[in-house]
Amino acid sequence: MRLVGDVDRASSRLQSEAVDWLTAVAPASVVIDLAAVTFAGSALLNFLTRLSGAVPVNTNLILWRPPPEIEMVLRVPGLTPKSVLRHGPLGPWAMGS
């Protein structure tokens, strides 16, 4: 999944649809590419929290390539306990190996 631009309340409907779809599909891993996010309000944190609670407990949530200002927000303790921040190329770890 790739997020682009501002992640705010204006995109909340799309975020809810994504959570619903990922819940139904129940993938082993979810890679969220954050490289093109220019602004992340509380909507991003709410989305990740909802997603973390909706997918199976063994699903890998990979927050990939967050810009430095977005990574600062994501590092708030306890917000997304199931997620992992990654910067390098995707590897076998992205597929749950």
Rank of each mutant, 00 (worst) to 15 (best):
A40N: 02
P68I: 06
E71R: 13
G78E: 05
P67M: 10
L45F: 07
F39D: 05
P81N: 03
N58V: 09
P77K: 08
A43W: 00
P81A: 05
L74K: 07
T38R: 13
R75P: 13
R75W: 12
L61G: 02
V76G: 03
L79Q: 14
P56N: 07
A43M: 03
A54M: 10
G53C: 12
L34F: 00
T49A: 14
P77Y: 04
R50E: 15
L34V: 00
V31C: 08
A40Q: 04
S42Y: 02
V37Y: 00
S42F: 04
R65D: 01
P66Y: 09
A36V: 13
A40T: 05
G78T: 09
P66N: 13
P67V: 12
L74Q: 09
R75D: 14
L79T: 11
P77E: 10
P68E: 11
L45C: 11
T49K: 06
I32E: 04
E69R: 12
P67D: 12
P66L: 10
V76I: 15
T59F: 04
I70V: 14
D33S: 09
N46D: 06
N46I: 01
R65V: 00
L34K: 00
V57D: 14
L61K: 02
P77H: 11
A43Y: 01
R50I: 09
P68N: 09
A35G: 08
L61V: 08
P66R: 10
